[in-house]
Design a protein around this nucleic acid. Structure first.
Length: 468
DNA sequence: CTATGGCACGGATT
DNA sequence: AATCCGTGCCATAG
């Protein structure tokens, strides 16, 4: 009925392209902001009311059928079903948060640690404190530790040191625990305190970290035993506890949790932009892929506005016309964005089905470049689409979309398996051999790198006795 | 002497 | 053109 096509003037085309690119690289959350601001500033744009699927209650785009219920051809088991799903249950810019999304996000970071942390504690801080916290958080290093002295922050804001310390304490108590500490030692102590609230901790743990951090980090256990006048065995127990439950580098979030040391995902990400599940939750059915549109309804050009333009005064007419064009452009770009992401996900999900269903081990190394030729778009288009987006897998994990293009993830996974399985500590060279036996050819140096990436300690100080 | 981490250099990717 | 990644060589620790 009211379509929004026509007008393909040259200048518009470039603007069109530019805006499509921008929208493409936006996260669902960012997109929401963008849409809201556009909606507020442009009267020609309107949000039409939601439509829901009568049977499953899912929000639908205006002319779409519900892909789940009116399940198209569920026989084409290979082809994933991809569709755009308007959802507005997606707000978190408002003050309170944390408990709102019980399910799928355990929260944590990767894209933007500072923002993530700030969001957690924002409600506890007043305006000026928030500014300090924000500044504080911009000076974290890759490990999540503070890279500048506290006094510097205090000086910068002309506030007493104690105030900064208070803020630091709040930051440290946010996830990932210990973030914003000045040293690994401090981070460990914070984590120990937090953990101590709900679990028993070895008595030796705290004094060891507090007083003999040097020995501890150098793994000089015999010295430790002597220093505290306890048996070597006791030291080992405490050390085991520390290395299992604490993490000196908060941002490198690979900690084996006390509760379930099952394959707890080492990294969890922001809210998903894309959801992947099985049709009707049946693993034999095709994959169902929802691309989140952070909206409660659908955007379109207001037809009333369009017709009203003829009656407008000459003065306003130009402005209105301008608005109209912008609106139509915006809608078009949005459609373009969705179309691109849809096609992208369709292809990616098809390729990586094994990965999606059966885990990291089955990730095929696919490059963005190869996909771009398949889809007939420019590489940068894929890059933009992939960057900064998170996907929720059927098993509930939230991973960055970029993980689908990780060249070495499968090898790293196998490497982890090898290390976990073998009771004895294997040297990097041995691991390299084992890997090539399994068909993964990597240099010994690379094994070392992968280990480091996964946060696995070198052979000589790995735990020879893997049981508790 | 062996096992690792650091630096740095192509080549591939973005 | 800028970046990332796998690797080789070398220094250092054990």
């Amino acid at each position: 009925m009211f379509q929004t096509h026509q007008q393909s003037l040259r200048p518009l085309t470039t603007a069109h392209l530019a805006q499509t690119m921008t929208l493409l690289s936006l996260t669902a959350d960012e997109l929401r902001e963008q849409i809201e601001s556009e909606l507020a500033s442009n009267p020609a744009l309107e949000l039409i009311e939601e439509r829901r699927c009568p049977t499953c209650h899912r929000l639908l785009a205006p002319h779409a059928m519900c892909p789940t219920c009116s399940s198209p051809r569920s026989d084409a088991a290979d082809e994933p079903i991809v569709f755009v799903s308007p959802r507005e249950d997606f707000n978190f810019s408002s003050g309170v948060n944390s408990e709102e999304m019980p399910e799928d996000n355990y929260s944590s970071t990767t894209e933007d640690l500072p923002t993530f942390v700030l969001r957690q504690i924002a409600s506890e801080l007043d305006g000026s404190e928030r500014a300090i916290a924000a500044y504080f958080l911009t000076h974290l290093d890759d490990d999540g530790l503070l890279s500048i002295p506290l006094v510097e922050i205090a000086r910068y804001f002309h506030v007493p040191l104690s105030k900064v310390e208070g803020i630091q304490r709040k930051i440290q108590h946010a996830e990932p625990y210990g973030v914003g500490s000045c040293s690994p030692q401090e981070a460990l102590l914070v984590q120990l305190d937090l953990l101590g609230e709900s679990h028993d901790i070895p008595v030796l743990a705290r004094p060891m970290i507090e007083k003999e951090m040097g020995l501890l980090s150098r793994h000089q256990y015999a010295e430790l035993a002597r220093a505290f006048k306890v048996s070597l065995r006791t030291v080992h127990q405490a050390v085991a506890f520390i290395s299992e439950n604490l993490n000196p580098f908060p941002a490198r979030s690979h900690w084996g949790d006390v509760r379930q040391s099952t394959e707890t995902p080492p990294q969890v990400y922001h809210r998903p932009d894309i959801l992947i599940s099985y049709l009707n939750d049946d693993p034999t059915k095709p994959l169902l892929i929802e691309i989140i549109m952070p909206l409660n309804g659908t955007l379109r050009v207001n037809p009333m506005f369009r017709s009203a333009i003829h009656e407008a005064e000459q003065e306003k007419k130009d402005d209105w016309k301008n608005d109209l064009e912008r609106a139509s452009l915006f809608v078009k770009c949005l459609q373009q964005r969705n179309h691109t992401i849809t096609r992208l996900m369709q292809r990616v999900a098809g390729l990586q089905r094994n990965f999606i269903c059966h885990g990291e081990k089955y990730l095929k190394p696919v490059t963005r470049a190869s996909l771009s030729v398949e889809l007939g778009v420019h590489e940068s288009t894929i890059s933009r689409a992939v960057a900064n987006k998170a996907v929720q897998l059927p098993n509930g994990r939230i991973v960055p979309l970029a993980m689908f293009f990780d060249r070495s993830l499968n090898v790293r996974k196998v490497l982890k398996e090898i290390i976990e399985k073998e009771g004895r500590s294997l040297s990097d060279t041995e691991i390299a051999d084992l890997l090539s036996q399994q068909g993964y050819q990597v240099a010994r140096r690379t094994v070392a790198k992968y280990r480091a990436m996964e946060g696995i300690l070198p052979a000589h100080l790995r735990r020879p006795t893997p049981g508790v």
